[in-house]
Design a protein around this nucleic acid. Structure first.
Length: 861
RNA sequence: GCGGGCGUGGCGAAACUGGUAGACGCAACGGACUUAAAAUCCGUCGGGAGCAAUCCCUUGCCGGUUCGACCCCGGCCGCCCGCACCA
């Protein structure tokens, strides 16, 4: 028997698909229902890693499956090609970002093509193609006209390593998401997108995303952070400080606790605090002290409450006889609400900590259920639960929610404030002081201000002749590029040298794929047909970055009339990472897996270096990363085991949303499977055989095959690929138990039918093997064009059931009955069973529970 | 601190809606074939008792609901992810 040889067959079938234009999705849609499958497009780093293999293999399973189900599938591929690494390469190696990027794309395209993906490569583009980013500039200008784009001076997150600004979403634990450098605050004039205009829509829209992971929806909701409360103004007692004649505006979510107020606090960055600091060196010193603390988790956790009494006093809005001191406090954030609060220490832990430290009053106003008003006291823990309001004049006796409403009504009636909704979400700062990005299509004119580049002058193309010998943005140093004339007055003017955050590039590419050559940024007809993406697949790390931005841009483009959908991704699946053990030598240096030999003794494993024999420490299972050297190169695996085995392995073993641990023995298992499958096809003799109803072995095989269809179908539909693969293994074992050699004609007929079903069922997972198997069966055409198999209900149905018999909840035997057998009949058979009778000796049967086709439980005592 | 998730053999895991716990794979062990190895094939494989049929224990821990709980409820313990002085 000839061994299955993936090295010959895999390239052969890829060529066959390419020659037949199998995966080309015509721009003009046909009568079939559409299905748009998309995996998050890759950054062209130069070579694919196992994470890519898993991501794209999953998408390919879905795409091929839907195709076989009769859908007109759109499954495109492109490149998220702008970004920092290209500039870093330019600085480190003197190559041009453009050349570096396109070389990488060429290399990765070949690797991805080797995966045998059912991708329509004719739609491929890179975000750094001027044809793409020019269209991006076009819609950017339309959003600018709409007022969704604006410029402001703001305190921004500055990444000192990448030397650029970052959006809030791109700062993780106070560090840049890409560089890992501690982020600094800087005041800069920047371009912003009004994502906050869409805060409510983005929260409310989450409810419609019923095919998104709950986790991602919760993360987005928390990130947007909507809270309802009251914004109101404290009048100053006596003379107000200059410029603050209107008073001091605060925000609270607990207007019900207003009578428990003991002081008013302002952030150290609050304009009033800065004003006071300018006049008083002692205040200035205090404000500087507050700034010193870092922003990292540990810093905040350990930060002590610091405050300074300003000497100012304000009047209580609901009780003019009462005044409150105004403190500058380090725990108040300028970024949130109004940067000023009223503090109710009895019912807020931070306020309480502060009040205890500075000996400020603590007056409880919410009485917990069961407590006595005369004796209830707050110690070190603030009471934040429900209860009845007391010590609060007209609010007394109301519950918390009713008191909130009443307090808001009173303040509104006095015209001193109003109910307000506040968000944690900030507008999206999109200016990046980088070269390798989409130029912001704006011209700055001394007379006219910033003016959008006229549409007929787009795209604003990046100049190629730039130097990376100095840090900073090369566009700023370019001798001619920025100098131009004002489109409005014709006078001398300068181009904007900031480029767009690369997350803008990835916020609409899915819509461009529907017609990548359209003259408009988005072809309305094509997008209306294909959008939304039916199944989007990618890493969970984009839960609040890319996935939030893309939702926002889609809504903004919808309001601009470019698309009709509000939500870009109807279904989302977030897949787990590919992990691998990391190895270290005695010196603590990371060692590559290929240099390590593992020895197994019983249940313990030890490792040594393959070449030197020195002992190696087997470390944790971690995400594959270059720094830990625990990377397995996909091309090495393709070479050794074939592409299908690699694809199969990343789909096996672990549920797709969970991390999968890469092991060599695991992929060997998948490789063995491909060979065993092939052996079954090869050993099947050619020819037609008639089914034999009387042949029990043949019937069992046919039943197994028809049942398998349902199992595999459900596992793909439900994203349980690992279970589907397990069922395929199980069925292969069944086939092997009914070999072709010396088989009856009935079994040969059943095998022929089973193999035809099997070839179609494995084709989403191991597409090359499936084609070779299909050809081996003598089938015409390719399996990729064959419809998904349909189970014969009569064969897939179980006509006989094995029911376990429990006595008092413990399994004591089993009986065989016809499927759907009546309860009374089942009870009779169960009670007559020898093993059951033995167990019931000396007991009285009290009750018999029969669950149809499932189980029998006898209660006896 | 808040929000979410998870905890099942030596390992990755399965168990659909409360109904036979451990499918399938990996590792391990035993055997066949082979001069030998690889590959392949067959078998064993949660723990314990027993010659055996069989029985007892077992899904992080404690308790509850139920004829019946990996699954539902309450309370602990541990791990992972996200957010975090957000008023």
């Amino acid at each position: 028997m000839a061994r299955y040889n993936p090295k010959d067959t895999e390239p052969k079938w890829r060529a066959a698909w390419a020659n037949a234009n199998t995966f080309l999705t015509p721009v003009t849609p046909d009568a079939r229902p559409k299905y748009y499958v998309l995996e998050m497009f890759p950054y062209p780093s130069g070579r694919i890693h196992m994470g890519h293999v898993r991501n794209y293999a999953m998408g390919d399973v879905v795409a091929r499956y839907k195709r076989a189900q009769g859908f007109n599938v759109l499954h495109p591929m492109g490149w998220d090609a702008f970004g920092m690494p290209a500039e870093n390469a330019a600085m480190e190696r003197g190559v041009h970002p453009k050349g570096w990027t396109y070389d990488n794309i060429a290399a990765m395209r070949e690797q991805l093509k080797a995966l045998g993906l059912s991708v329509d490569w004719s739609r491929e583009f890179a975000t750094c193609d001027p044809e793409y980013y020019g269209k991006q500039q076009a819609w950017f200008l339309r959003l600018l006209k709409r007022g969704l784009v604006y410029r402001k001076e703001a305190s921004v997150n500055w990444d000192p390593v990448d030397m650029t600004v970052l959006a809030n979403e791109q700062v993780i634990d106070g560090k840049g998401w890409r560089s890992g450098a501690t982020v600094e605050k800087r005041k800069l004039t920047q371009w912003f997108l009004r994502i906050t205009d869409y805060a409510d829509a983005l929260i409310d829209g989450l409810k419609t995303l019923d095919r998104w992971p709950e986790k991602v929806r919760i993360m987005q909701e928390n990130w947007i952070g909507r809270s309802k409360g009251l914004r109101f103004t404290f009048k100053f007692d006596g003379k107000a400080p200059a410029g603050h004649a209107d008073g001091l505006e605060v925000y609270t979510t607990r207007p019900d606790t207003l009578f428990g107020a003991s002081f008013v606090g302002i952030a150290p960055e609050h304009p009033l605090a800065e004003q006071l600091a300018a006049a008083d060196p002692a205040v200035a010193a205090f404000v500087a002290e507050c700034r010193k603390g870092g922003t990292s988790e540990a810093d905040i956790e350990g930060a002590e409450k610091l405050g300074r009494d300003t000497g100012l006093r304000v009047v209580h809005p609901l009780d003019p006889t009462q005044t409150l001191p105004v403190w500058i406090a380090n725990f108040i954030l300028m970024d949130y609400g109004t940067g000023a609060i009223f503090a109710c220490p009895a019912h807020d832990q931070r306020d309480l900590d502060f009040a205890r430290k500075y000996d400020l009053p603590v007056l409880p106003v919410v009485l917990p259920p069961g407590e006595d008003a005369a004796s209830f006291q707050v110690g070190k823990e603030a009471y934040v639960g429900p209860g009845a309001i007391f010590n609060s004049k007209f609010l007394d006796g109301l519950d918390v929610e009713a008191a909130k409403t009443e307090a808001v009504n009173r303040i509104e009636a006095m015209d001193q404030g109003q109910g307000a909704t506040v968000y944690r979400l900030r507008d999206w700062g999109v200016s990046r002081q980088r070269y390798w990005g989409c130029p912001i299509p704006v011209i700055h004119c001394a007379a006219c201000g910033p003016v959008g580049v006229p549409e007929d002058q787009l795209p604003v193309v990046l100049p190629d002749d730039v130097a990376f010998d100095k840090p900073g943005n090369p566009l700023l140093r370019h001798p001619t590029w920025r100098h131009t004339t004002c489109p409005s007055c014709g006078g001398k003017a300068e181009r904007e040298t900031d480029t767009l955050d690369t997350f803008v590039d990835s916020s609409w590419y899915f819509a461009r794929f529907t017609d990548p050559t359209a003259a408009e940024p988005i072809s309305k007809a094509a997008a209306d047909h294909w959008m939304p993406v039916d199944q989007y697949i990618g890493g969970v790390e984009h839960a609040v970055l890319h996935l939030l931005y893309a939702r926002f841009i889609t809504r903004a483009l919808k309001d601009e009339g470019l698309v009709s959908v509000e939500e870009p991704f109807a279904g989302l699946f977030t897949q787990g990472m590919v992990t691998h053990e990391a190895y270290k030598n005695a010196a603590g240096e990371w060692v590559e897996p290929s240099d390590v030999v593992i020895a197994v003794e019983g249940n313990s494993r030890s490792a040594k270096h393959a070449a030197t024999g020195e002992p190696i420490v087997i470390g944790d299972i971690e995400k594959m990363s270059k720094s830990k050297k625990n990377v397995v190169a996909p091309e090495d695996i393709f070479e050794a085991y074939g592409v299908d085995a690699a694809r199969l392995f990343v789909m096996s073993d672990s549920p797709p949303e969970r991390d999968v641990q890469w092991t060599n023995s695991g992929v060997e298992g998948s490789w063995r499977f491909t060979h065993r499958v092939w052996n079954e096809f090869e050993s099947q003799p050619a020819g037609d055989f008639a089914h034999d109803e009387a042949d029990a072995a043949a019937l069992a095989l046919r039943k197994g095959a028809h049942r398998l269809i349902g199992f595999v179908t459900d596992s793909i539909e439900g994203f349980r690929f690992n279970s589907g693969v397990a069922r395929l293994y199980e069925f292969l074992n069944m086939l092997k138990a009914a070999p072709a050699e010396n088989a009856t004609h009935g079994v040969l007929a059943a095998r022929a039918e089973a193999l035809e079903i099997l070839a179609r069922l494995i084709s989403p997972f191991t597409p090359h093997l499936a084609e070779e198997a299909w050809a081996q069966l003598g089938k015409s055409g390719m399996v990729v064009d064959a419809p998904w198999p349909k189970a014969d209900p009569a064969l897939a149905a179980d006509d006989e059931r094995v029911l376990p018999i429990q006595i008092n909840g413990k399994r004591r035997g089993e009986i065989k009955v016809k499927a759907g057998a009546a309860e009374a009949e089942v009870e009779k058979i169960a009670l007559a069973d020898a093993a059951v009778m033995a167990h019931l000796e000396g007991l009285t049967v009290r009750k018999v529970i029969v669950v149809k086709d499932r189980i029998v439980n006898i209660v006896a005592g």
